[in-house]
């Protein structure tokens, strides 16, 4: 009898759920954290869609794509949010993603015409340091200095991979020489961004690979103006974060609505002070106070998505060879 009652309870609960369509979005961990953008965006979208929006944390960057590949066409995900342009070509190749029909007036440093993915935020990679430090103006000056840096491993971390692409796009065939010059500046290489940033805050290094927007967190959330990002004259590599709809989604219309919602004010205004990145479409009210103090690079560097995986493999081999000596 008890079991019957339990079964009945489960069935009723399921029926109640079934009334509202569920939109499942796979994303990375810090997006869904309670202090990340996830909760606010969920509330804002659910207020308009009469649906249940569920975020699933499925690892960052490459892990997110690996998860979708593992699940293949059976995946529960309707949308994947959190890939970047280094991964989009590989994602399209899986054939699991469907084209979108979103148009927006993007405030990106590059033109955007990807048929499959919609950008929601972006940032420049940069070395963050204490404001009083006389920061070098480029990789060569950094390599010649005695400054100590912490970076992330490109094999396990998105910023780590970004740095690899940065040096490769800025220096091409000279990249191995740059890495050999940097070898004695690198204190250590960490698994992810968190470890590296923590080491920097603990004083283990003079600079850490992060984003030009990192000082905004310290300024806005901690009222601490002592961090800055070094401007490099060879330009800064871009990270553009995107979302895409899965071809096998059982909620195609809802997914389309979410992608369209993503470039609106309600989504974009949450991004700067929760994800600490630039919104893909600047909100009408502008960027939060404090963002105007950030370093703005003169040149944006980006490998076209189609060539990303080729450049990546070559650059990784060079990086390993230069730093394994």
């Amino acid at each position: 009898m008890k079991y019957l009652a339990f079964a009945a309870g489960v069935l009723t609960a399921t029926a109640a759920w079934a009334e509202k369509p569920v939109l499942t979005i796979y994303t990375y961990d810090s997006f869904v954290a309670d202090w990340g953008p996830g909760p606010q965006i969920e509330a804002a979208f659910e207020a308009t869609c009469d649906c249940d929006l569920q975020f699933v944390a499925a690892g960052d960057g490459a892990a997110l794509l690996a998860r979708v590949k593992l699940e293949g066409a059976r995946t529960d995900a309707d949308i994947v949010l959190g890939l970047d342009t280094n991964l989009t070509a590989a994602a399209v190749e899986t054939g699991l993603f469907a084209p979108h029909s979103v148009t927006a007036d993007y405030d990106l440093p590059v033109a955007w015409d990807d048929a499959t993915f919609v950008p929601y935020d972006w940032g420049y990679f940069a070395f963050v340091h204490n404001a009083e430090l006389a920061a070098p103006a480029n990789f060569r000056a950094l390599a010649e200095s005695d400054l100590k840096i912490v970076i992330q491993d490109p094999r396990s971390s998105t910023p780590g991979l970004g740095l690899l692409m940065w040096v490769k796009t800025a220096y091409g065939d000279e990249a191995p020489a740059i890495w050999e010059g940097l070898a004695d500046n690198i204190v250590t290489v960490t698994k992810g961004w968190s470890e590296a940033y923590g080491l920097f805050l603990d004083g283990e290094a003079d600079m850490v690979l992060s984003y030009t927007t990192s000082p905004a967190y310290h300024l806005i959330a901690e009222d601490d103006a002592t961090r800055a990002a070094a401007a490099f004259d060879e330009g800064h590599y871009l990270q553009i974060e995107v979302a895409g709809k899965l071809a096998g989604t059982d909620q195609p219309e809802l997914a389309d609505r979410f992608l369209a919602f993503m470039v609106t004010e309600a989504f974009q205004s949450v991004i700067p002070t929760t994800n600490w990145m630039y919104p893909a479409v600047t909100p009408e009210s502008g960027l939060p106070a404090g963002f105007e103090t950030l370093t703005v690079p003169e040149r944006a560097l980006l490998v076209p998505p189609a060539q990303a995986s080729e450049v990546r493999d070559a650059a990784l081999a060079e990086w390993l060879a230069a730093l394994s000596r």
């Binding site: 794509l65 590949k69 094999r155 396990s156 070898a183 690198i186 250590t188 290489v189 960490t190 698994k191």
Partner: peptide, 24 residues
């Protein structure tokens, strides 16, 4: 990795990460 100071200190577990996430 953190205390090893760089890719010289690549362990099997990191190679597994690379195989799985980087190269699938």
């Amino acid at each position: 990795l953190t205390l090893g100071g760089g890719p010289r200190a690549t362990t099997v577990e990191l190679a597994i990460y690379q195989a799985f996430l980087f190269d699938f």
